[in-house]
């Protein structure tokens, strides 16, 4: 429905009916301190009883209020999401810092995991930036990022409004003063999710599976440990975020099951880039991009040998986890702890 159609409804249907159909409209009324309108009347008529002064404080006149309400309802009505249609992205090469062409075209499909490796300052973050702003030969690397094989014009780039890419990094924390449940419910509401209870429950359950230490729904998000926070962020990104692309920057020693976490995101048909030097993460990817001197030097598909080694690496990693847990519990470390668990 268009803004005009919403305005017509607001002009003819009793407000109570409109609010019943679009409960989010309550938010609009609250934002303009219009919570006490005569609901049995259509919005435009109920508005006649409101002081000019009260509306003017918000810079509105009656028609302006009607128009704003119409635009608001239009904005928050779930619509076809163009982002769901992102099936692949293609990185079309530019040049490195010495202006040598990259000569590459790499297409990545939904569900694929790509790791990015290279020394500090080599250009890993630059590549992630190019992806985020959907570079079209207009950044300093000259790269082009195609979506579903096509170039994008500026208008389409603006339309994405930063929703194309979700990010996850070591520095991120929760700042809201909410419990885990309230937090998830709030996010679900913003996503205009129809089955809030269900989504919240699954997010909570998955987050707990990923976290080393369990937590309850009533924990304040600000009181979660680093690992628990990361686990909640990943489950939340997997089940509630719109964004088809996920950029993960260094979640090395996160106290969560990293491999499972990445797998969970991939299962949700996201395109995943992980900038990392963590062997477990780097080898969990289908391909890895080697960055040198600002350019993509090589793209390696994971070999059979590397795939096999992943099991061994995971055991090493589990051993380290066990040692950490033991130390935390005040136990002594024995040589036998260093070998694989017999179970």
């Amino acid at each position: 429905m268009t803004v005009n159609e919403f305005m017509m409804i607001l002009d003819s249907k009793p407000l109570a009916e409109v609010l019943k159909e679009y409960p989010i409209g309550w938010d609009f009324l609250a934002n303009f301190r219009l919570n006490n309108l005569a609901n049995e009347l259509p919005f435009s008529q109920a508005l006649l009883k409101v002081d000019d002064e009260a509306l003017a404080e918000f810079g509105l006149d009656r028609f302006g209020a009607l128009k704003s309400f119409g635009a608001f309802l239009e904005q928050f009505t779930p619509k076809e999401n163009p982002l769901e249609e992102v099936k692949s992205i293609t990185i079309s090469g530019g040049w490195n810092k010495s202006r040598t062409p990259e000569n590459i075209s790499l297409t990545i499909s939904a569900g694929e995991i790509i790791s990015i490796v290279g020394p500090t300052g080599s250009g890993k973050s630059r590549l992630l930036n190019d992806i985020e702003c959907l570079a079209q030969g207009d950044t300093l690397t000259g790269r082009r990022i195609l979506v579903n094989g096509a170039e994008l014009d500026d208008l389409q780039r603006f339309e994405m409004e930063g929703k194309l890419v979700a990010q996850l990094s070591q520095n991120m924390n929760f700042v809201m003063d909410l419990t885990v449940r309230e937090f998830l419910e709030m996010h679900a509401k913003c996503r205009l999710t129809p089955n809030v209870g269900e989504v919240v429950a699954i997010c909570f359950q998955r987050a707990n599976q990923l976290a080393g230490e369990k937590f309850s729904e009533d924990t304040l998000v600000t009181q979660l440990s680093g690992g628990q926070s990361r686990a909640l962020m990943i489950a939340d990104t997997a089940y509630m975020s719109d964004s088809p692309i996920i950029l993960i920057d260094e979640i090395e020693n996160a106290g969560i099951n990293r491999r499972q976490a990445i797998g969970l995101l991939a299962k949700r048909e996201k395109i995943i880039f992980v900038s990392t030097h963590d062997p477990l993460l780097a080898l969990s990817a289908h391909k890895r991009i080697i960055i040198k001197n600002g350019g993509i030097a090589k793209v390696i598909s994971i070999s059979e040998e590397e795939k096999e080694s992943l099991g061994v690496i995971e055991n090493l990693d589990n051993t380290m986890q066990r040692l950490r847990t033991a130390l935390r519990a005040g136990e002594l470390i024995h040589m036998k702890d260093l070998s694989e668990p017999s179970s």
Binding site: N31, E161, G162, M172, H187, S229, D236
Partner: peptide, 28 residues
């Protein structure tokens, strides 16, 4: 300052911006 809060909070924040200004472009 999106670098220091969670993705979810960024999304909630953007949602609250759109609630008061549905017409604006939101850029991080």
């Amino acid at each position: 300052k999106g670098d220091i809060v969670s993705q979810a909070e960024r999304e909630v924040f953007a949602f609250n911006i759109r609630q008061v200004n549905s017409a604006a472009k939101v850029i991080f």
